[in-house]
């Protein structure tokens, strides 16, 4: 396959940045999208040019590190996959492909396609946990039966990989799906109930502090989420948040 790549280049946070064009040849259908970028980078390094900086690690769709906006879609065409799981068989010879970083004021660009998603860690630190210390004498894991449907729904929410596709996709740059996934997971489980109110308030407060936008129910996040996390979790978070805000001391 012969392709034309239009890639966002930005040397650092203070650089204005621009799209640059790279023709590329010899791309095979079995290659993953990131392997195609590897091929380009190998070529650039041989020419003594600066290779494209991009985040990636596990390359099997679970670490959440890869983050490319491809042809106007977070993680490119296809549903339920990350950029690293996107294969070149989805493109055809002669295609022009546009590749940009996640764009959100809360995810500043570090270089080229690499952005800073530290805001997600700070939201997590604000309340995305059950306050339990490592304990040598806990009750048995089976002492607290959890209904299978609750456990399964909690699991669905817990599959969030924190990649930020929801933010990049949202016209408002909202992080509601990310935050809701954690709030919802823990509020569905009895272990998470005791501090459910506190958690919802603290995580939402931190989310707002980080400058993420509000949710206006466009649902784009759910469509682009590589783990297909449902909007219903946002509804659950809103319920938790409302209840917490109304009964706040």
């Amino acid at each position: 396959m012969k392709l034309t790549l239009k890639i966002w280049r930005q040397s650092g946070p203070n650089d204005k940045g621009r799209m640059e064009t790279y023709p590329i040849d010899g791309i095979e259908e079995d290659m993953s999208f990131l392997e195609m970028i590897d091929v380009l980078n190998l070529q650039l390094v041989r020419e003594g040019k600066d290779p494209i900086a991009f985040d990636h690690d596990c390359r099997e769709g679970i670490c959440g590190m890869c983050s490319m906006f491809i042809n106007g879609e977070a993680h490119g065409p296809g549903r339920g996959i990350t950029t690293c799981q996107l294969h070149m068989r989805r493109f055809k010879d002669g295609d022009t492909i546009f590749i940009e970083p996640w764009r959100s004021g809360s995810f500043p660009v570090i270089k080229d396609l690499v952005v800073d998603r530290g805001a997600f860690d700070r939201i997590q630190a604000a309340g995305g946990f059950v306050s339990v210390n490592t304990n040598g004498n806990l009750v048995d894991g089976n002492a607290l039966p959890i209904a299978k449907d609750h456990a399964d729904t909690a699991f669905d929410a817990a599959t969030c990989i924190g990649c930020g596709a929801c933010v990049a996709t949202c016209p408002n740059g909202s992080a509601m799906l990310f935050v809701a996934a954690k709030v919802s997971q823990l509020s569905l489980l009895p272990q998470g109930r005791p501090e459910a109110k506190q958690r919802a308030l603290a995580m939402v407060e931190q989310m707002d502090k980080e400058g993420f936008g509000n949710c206006s129910n466009t649902g784009a996040c759910e469509v682009e989420c590589p783990k297909e996390i449902s909007l219903e979790h946002i509804a659950r978070m809103n319920r938790e948040y409302m209840a917490a805000a109304m009964t706040k001391e």
Binding site: F129, V130, V132, T134, N135, L138, V139, D140, G141, L144, P145, I146, A147, K148, A151, D152, A154, F155, A158, Q185, L186, L189, Q191, G192
Partner: peptide, 13 residues
């Protein structure tokens, strides 16, 4: 297992 359950790890049930 007990520790992870207490943290809210959604193991299969």
């Amino acid at each position: 297992i007990d520790q992870c359950v207490a943290q809210g790890v959604p193991f299969a049930r």
